[in-house]
Nucleic acid binder design. Sequence first.
DNA 1: TATTTTTAATAGTAACACTATTATATTTGT
DNA 2: ACAAATATAATAGTGTTACTATTAAAAATA
Lengths: 225, 225
Amino acid sequence: MEYLGGKISIDVNDKVFLKDPRSSKLGNKIIEGAIDLIDEIGFEEFTFRKLASSINSTEASVYRYFENKHNLLVYLTLWYWGWLEYRLVFRLVNVEDPYERLDRAIKTLTEPIKQDSDFTQIDEVKLNRIVISESSKIYLHKLVELDNSHGFFKPYKDLVQRVCDIILEINPGYKYPHMLISTCIEGAHHQRFFAEHLPRLTDILPDEDAVTTFYLDLIKKAIQK
Amino acid sequence: MEYLGGKISIDVNDKVFLKDPRSSKLGNKIIEGAIDLIDEIGFEEFTFRKLASSINSTEASVYRYFENKHNLLVYLTLWYWGWLEYRLVFRLVNVEDPYERLDRAIKTLTEPIKQDSDFTQIDEVKLNRIVISESSKIYLHKLVELDNSHGFFKPYKDLVQRVCDIILEINPGYKYPHMLISTCIEGAHHQRFFAEHLPRLTDILPDEDAVTTFYLDLIKKAIQK
DNA sequence: TATTTTTAATAGTAACACTATTATATTTGT
DNA sequence: ACAAATATAATAGTGTTACTATTAAAAATA
């Protein structure tokens, strides 16, 4: 899929970095290198020293861009939510029927990710694996309310709200649209993680994207009047 | 709730510890102290040095019981799943109607936790907060398959399977019982975390346990034929 | 009571998170 | 074009953490 051929970029909340990594060659290498390295060794094993060595730079230089590795992970996650909202908007534009809109929205949120040629510097497939395995660590910690006060969760809320609006168009009386959509987004991540690492915890069916089918069915039944 | 007045205990997979913490005074203090300290400062800030100092022991002594803090968190989580399965079995025994059984099972998995006087050494309310905030970190890491090979996820699978069996009794044709139940367990944790720390991400309604109501409704609609 | 055996404390090491300072490159003004 | 100002990155550290080898003390057994 390509809409604009590299002519746009996803803006990320500037409180998350010390210096914008998009503003220099080294900054871009930090983002690309971080995606490769976190995907490879996981967030716990990932350190700025290892990242610096993998891109032939130094630890102190990485610290000029990000206060710590937590904020770097927040950056990657915010970019991802921004990118996903951009994709969602494109897949819904000019589609009027709310049922068709909901179907497209759920698929956008739950289907496996393919490379997006509009953003050649970012490997969305690796980034999706990172979001699945690591992104919940950005809010499952004691400073979540501080991060929230900086607006780090706004892109996620915006994304959820867009789908809520469709649900409320279909059934204005449905009481739990936010719970339903965040359950669906987080749940789809969990199920894909389970399917890969703990298959006995899910229901794998060959030749079918069971995750998307399951959440499509779940949401449609949930919002029935 | 009290069934047996301290005459039973929850067995935890012995591969998770080096020396059984239930076998000595220091071991019990490690578990109690760990629950207090992780609940207070979070798992990232938690170290064996801080734990040792909080119970007037030494770092090296804690290491005689657990290889690392990851395995201590696994221990706490396994105890919790074991305890929850024990509670589930008691709440389902002698109840025949599968709809009533399902209702009780979902409530057991999603309702807020109260202190259990059968296990006076463990503060289940604090432990529940730890499971909500920290337990997903035990599988969201690169060594999850090793832990799985040691059987660390068996208590979780057993718990899920018990509820799956009820669902299949009600609707034998339902294709995704494992996804539905794990979505519900993990989702309820997420929603309670959101409700406390990121309320804008959920649907808070005063004077109602919206989390349990939501998942009861979701599951009943999902398995309808 | 002497001898094992169990248990816990001391004292380390390597790696990690993070920073103060210095050196180098780039930009800007004249 | 060249010097001054500014931006950028590297060097060399500090305190802390995760983890271990060794020694000391206590308890159990012969």
